[in-house]
């Protein structure tokens, strides 16, 4: 068992729940609302020095009972020791957890991927957008167990939405703000960019465009 578990218990007490050893790896369950504090301590505390964030991911079990888990895989370069931390998030709750981007920049895209795939929101994340799916994807969160393998919409519905979508919404809000400086963009195009955040041009608007 990893020695850091005892150190964590001594420092954080109740916030550290049970720990397990599986296939030689130690993993510790911690309170979801203390994750930021605990990870920051593990990184900064002399004797722990988990300076490398290997991975951030989430797990949902097939059994509907257990909560969602956010998994942090850490590694200490000076001590050559791995440690896995897990935080439980009740599915009925609001699925929010503190972002650790301010501790490790590497968490940025990893947390975006967890948000994209599981719908877990990371508080204080600088740029929480979908990353692998497109920003206007509205079938839900693909890696959740209630998401069917072939997607939530029928093939015909998917095609209908693609054809109806506004191709210019491929630019994110951030990029639009850059483009707005550029006076060469036609006014109606800028309006469509600003309006089309959901990926679909409202029917009335598209008819108006045609006229």
């Amino acid at each position: 068992m990893n020695q850091s578990v005892d150190a964590l218990r001594a420092r954080f007490g109740e916030a550290i729940q049970d720990h397990h050893v599986s296939c030689g790896d130690t993993y510790v369950y911690v309170d979801a609302d203390k994750v930021y504090e605990i990870l920051n301590w593990l990184k900064e505390e002399p004797g722990q020095e988990y300076d490398y964030l290997v991975d951030v991911t989430a797990v949902e079990y097939r059994d509907p009972e257990p909560p969602l888990e956010v998994v942090y895989e850490l590694f200490s370069h000076p001590r050559k020791v791995p440690l896995r931390l897990k935080a439980k998030l009740e599915k009925e709750g609001d699925l929010e957890i503190d972002s650790v981007v301010s501790i490790w920049h590497g968490a940025d895209w990893l947390e975006r991927e967890v948000f994209d795939m599981f719908g877990i929101k990371f508080r204080n994340h600088p740029d929480l957008r979908r990353i692998l799916m497109w920003e206007t994807y509205d079938e839900g969160y693909p890696l959740r167990k209630d998401f069917p393998l072939r997607g939530r919409f029928s093939r015909s519905e998917q095609v209908r939405r693609v054809l109806k979508g506004n191709p210019e919404t491929n630019y994110s809000v951030e990029e639009i703000s850059i483009a707005k400086d550029n006076t060469s963009i036609p006014d109606d195009m800028r309006q469509r960019l600003l309006r089309g955040e959901s990926g679909n041009i409202p029917d009335s608007a598209s008819e108006a465009d045609r006229v």
């Binding site: 599986s22 991975d55 949902e60």
Partner: peptide
Amino acid sequence: EAFCSIEGAKGELGYYLVSDGSAKPVRWR
């Protein structure tokens, strides 16, 4: 559950498998 990483050509290539005892993984990361 098991996490195992190797030094791939691009960097640290890790696999994380969670099993609930069946023949298919609950989560493959």
